[in-house]
């Protein structure tokens, strides 16, 4: 039974605590500011906002085979 209480207490502290630490980290680093920029962070210069990307990647004006040779 002691083991059970230890598991309960440790896991509650560990995981509750890590969530609090993560939230504090996010606020300190400014992750929770400027939401507009955050929303656009998944777009790139070659897959910008406004481009529908559900097409075969090799056929777009884009990397596939050629890209590796160069890099």
């Amino acid at each position: 039974m002691t083991l059970n209480y230890i598991v309960f207490a440790a896991s509650a502290l560990l995981f509750g605590g890590s969530a609090v630490v993560a939230l504090a980290w996010a606020m300190r680093k400014g992750q929770l500011e400027n939401f507009q920029r955050g929303a656009t962070s998944i777009f790139d210069a070659d897959e910008p906002i406004g481009r529908v990307t559900d097409s075969f990647p090799g056929q777009k004006p884009k990397p596939a085979g050629g890209a590796t040779k160069r890099s």
């Binding site: 656009t40 777009f43 790139d44 210069a45 070659d46 906002i49 990397p63 590796t68």
Partner: peptide, 25 residues
């Protein structure tokens, strides 16, 4: 698919080909 219909800048300070190559890697 009209661009920037929510505002926000579209171009990032990296050129398209580099972006494509990076994503490919």
């Amino acid at each position: 698919g009209r661009a920037s219909d929510r505002g926000g800048s579209v171009e990032r300070p990296i050129d398209p080909e580099r972006a494509a190559r990076r994503r490919f890697r």
